[in-house]
């Protein structure tokens, strides 16, 4: 945390535009980081981006993809450091009232809660690759390269995660 605050005072200018900040926040949130800690997570991404550029390290194809991977790793680290985590479904439920006046509002809410619970129940490595593949839209090869693991490992984690979530959706009868 102290390192993050130092970077903020350095004031090097914002490396992340508004759209990228929103994306990073969403990936952190999907990774289980509570709302109160999201801004710190964004700052950590900024710091790592600064470090990477200062060292001349080659990023992924695009800064957005690189930031997505860094954010997912930060979410993983957060879980390793903290014992307690708020379940996604509890945080979704705690949001101010859902708009159930939209067509299918209540059923849609149930679907979202089912996916959130399924996401929380995934092992962290599976959750990480699932978010990188289907939220950040990174190709399997890029995920493997960024995480430093074989492509086959990414595929097997994705496969397991999708099978688990599909089973969850069908068990809950939301699809």
């Amino acid at each position: 945390m102290a390192v993050v605050r130092k970077a903020r005072r350095a004031g090097s200018g914002d490396l992340l535009d508004a759209a990228l900040v929103d994306r990073v926040r969403a990936i952190l949130a999907l990774g289980g980081v509570p709302h109160a800690d999201l801004q710190d997570g964004v700052q950590q991404v900024r710091l790592k981006l600064l470090e990477a550029r200062a060292e001349g390290r080659e990023a992924l194809r695009s800064p957005a993809a690189w930031c997505a991977v860094v954010a997912s790793n930060i979410a993983m680290d957060w879980h390793r450091e903290r014992r307690r985590r708020e379940r996604l479904d509890e945080r979704l439920t705690a949001l101010r009232p859902w708009d159930t006046t939209q067509p299918g509002g209540e059923e849609a809410r149930v679907l979202s809660l089912s996916v959130a619970e399924g996401l929380d129940e995934l092992p962290l490595p599976q959750r990480q690759v699932l978010v990188l593949r289907f939220y950040a839209d990174l190709p399997v090869a890029d995920i493997a390269e960024a995480l430093g693991i074989p492509g086959g490992t990414v595929k097997s984690r994705l496969h397991a995660a999708v099978r688990a979530l599909r089973a969850r959706l069908h068990t809950d009868e939301v699809v």
Binding site: I27, V162, L165, L169
Partner: peptide, 18 residues
Amino acid sequence: DVAILREQLAFIGTALAG
């Protein structure tokens, strides 16, 4: 089913990130 998951991830992430 994967298309549903994609849309739900986008919704959940955006909703929780605020």
